[in-house]
Design a protein around this nucleic acid. Structure first.
Lengths: 356, 356
DNA sequence: GCCCCCGATCGAATCGATTCGAGCACCACG
DNA sequence: CGTGGTGCTCGAATCGATTCGATCGGGGGC
């Protein structure tokens, strides 16, 4: 039963079998420190015989004071967050950068819904050398609070800059201004906008002044500010509960009815925008002849083919890598500067001049 | 600087401050064992004063011999695996079940491509109490080999049953047979099928006898067998490199040309099927009047709306939960029985009688 | 031929908590 | 007033590896 013995075999056993001290055996595995080739061989041979597959990570971690784990806090239900290709691709870029550093990603779920406690127990108890919060992160975020108490360094993605927290983001505001100008330059004047959620309440529908003045989530606020920067006062600001195709479709159905419907809809995400496109088609409107639609993120959306969504491309893999760099900085004791990645306007086939 | 002191404060410090022994202080936190309320209060008070946020997980883990971590091995690049909603939703169900058990999920990437070493270093070195392999898992899988050497118990999802490994899966074969019979009953005779990858080579195109006889990945093999079970000999078996909309579209474009094109296409995943539907529309074919399309998984595909894909629904959250149960079994030292979850045919709007 | 130095190896302390058995004080009962 | 029991608290061992300083032996330099 190699399973059982493998679990119980320790470095001390191997050392004894090889006739060396524990410290020497340790050197044979870690490679740090001087050791004669012959000795190392002998130790490895003994390990092989005993079915010892290397030092127990738990012992190593305790001694080193490092777990080699980066906790990634998904700002929301896994399911929802994961249907967001943006998060996924960033996560992919992150793991790619973290792997060579010998670091692994521990998935920490956000709260499942408003009724549940806002902080997953793992946030307070799991071993992690650094935490990455993928979304949200207002100043009074209880998750950040907990992490700070533990003394875990934090990387915040697309959140509110604050002391003692490394921030990684993109130029949302500039990108949004750029795509808005593109739409304005085409001649549009009646422009509506569809936004990401404002806060944990996740309201759906047109936002009134009260809601507009209290947008908690940085990303929604910044992207909205971009529209204003371009000199546009949206006819409607439509708030969605999540960045999903179906919410975009619902927004589209609501916005694109009636005589004074907007001639262009600018969305804060590609998923929302593709929902609007589908809704427009459903209503018998041609895109872009009858209505122009723009998104944000620059995703490949195979199901819109042959159309290409006009959008603002953000460098997803690079963003993941930047997060990884920030993590490395914090681990090395450097304090990480704010990283803001550039975005670029992608003009597709879903925007054109407004109908005459 | 609460950060620094928090990191360095230990249970011993708290005990000293509270005027109790370390063991008593430990009891105050763990809650196991008898302790007077007043004493506990005193300890917690001292902890608060010192900015101690609870026992260091590393120490606890070493002592307990448990890390509280479940390693989840994504059978493929994160990016690709994550674009697969099936994996995501299962993962969500899994974390939901694992949370209450105090377990966290460590993401372990599969190899990025064929040229890279097939086993991520984390598989061999990261602390994990149980490993879950989400995909693949042939008998000679080097990942499983490594895990076995380490003595880490394994849960295999949709893989080849083998000794010492807990298996969770669904009734692929039965489900596929059912949907195939549905199509046959509608009157179809010329039926093509689009499959998931056969192996790490990820070939794209029609599969010849040689390839058909050597399908390494269990899931593709079983779903194909389901078609045969229903008495259907597919006119073409089209292999794809991954379960993605664009590969389905490519298959559709190739299959749906020419005079003796199939009247129905049965796909091994919904993503592939939706690609086929899009390709059909692109070619000016009506679905289901000109061609019927069926998928597998039972996903919500908002972009096909108002169409609903005929498919075989698998219980994704329940699958995640079943994996969690298997994990719990293994941790408790029970050996887990094989879990096979039922599937159910969902007749949508994409299948109908063949053209006259 | 002697001494010094360097490379290899070893011992022992340490990381931070958990846990078991022993000890102790106090209460209740006889 | 003595004894048995109960309920807390404490000491010490332990989990498995890393690492620093000390030791030992052999080869090279003078």
């Amino acid at each position: 039963m190699p399973t059982l013995s493998a679990q119980r075999t320790t470095l001390a056993d191997v050392a004894a079998a090889a006739g060396v001290s524990v410290s020497t055996a340790s050197l044979a595995f870690s490679g740090s420190g001087p050791i004669a080739d012959r000795t190392r061989e002998r130790v490895l041979e003994a390990a092989r015989t005993l079915g010892y597959s290397g030092p127990n990570p738990l012992g190593r971690q305790l001694r080193r004071g490092r777990s080699g784990i980066v906790g990634v806090i998904m700002g929301d239900v896994l399911r929802r967050a994961f249907r967001d290709p943006v998060t996924i691709q960033v996560l992919d870029g992150l793991t790619a950068r973290l792997g060579p550093l010998g670091l692994g990603v521990l998935l920490v779920p956000g709260p499942h819904d408003v009724s549940q406690p806002p902080v997953d127990p793992l946030v307070g108890t799991a071993a992690m050398d650094v935490a990455v919060q993928m979304w949200g992160g207002t100043t009074d975020d209880p998750v950040l609070e907990t992490l700070r108490n533990r003394g875990v360094p934090i990387v915040l993605v697309e959140g509110t800059p604050q002391p003692d927290v490394a921030v990684v983001g993109i130029d949302d505001r500039g990108g949004m201004a750029e795509v808005t100008r593109h739409v304005v330059d085409l001649g549009h004047r009646r422009i509506a906008t569809v936004t990401l959620p404002f806060d944990r309440d996740r309201v759906e529908g047109p936002a009134d002044a009260a809601r507009l003045s209290g947008i908690a989530w940085e990303i929604s606020r910044r992207r909205l500010a971009g529209v204003t920067d371009a000199g546009v006062e949206p006819t409607v600001v439509w708030e969605t509960p999540a960045s999903l195709v179906e919410h975009g479709a619902a927004a589209g159905r609501a916005l694109l009815q009636g005589p004074d419907r907007p001639t262009a809809v600018i969305c804060q995400s590609d998923l929302l925008a593709s929902g609007v496109v589908l809704a427009a088609r459903e209503l018998g409107l041609r895109v872009p002849e009858d209505v122009s639609v723009a998104g944000f993120d620059g995703l490949d959306l195979p199901w819109l083919a042959p159309d290409v969504l006009t959008s603002v491309s953000q460098p997803l893999a690079a963003k993941g890598a930047a997060i990884g760099d920030a993590v490395a900085d914090l681990l090395a004791g450097r304090d990480a500067e704010e990283r803001v990645l550039p975005v670029v306007l992608r003009v597709g086939t879903t925007t054109g001049p407004p109908p005459a």
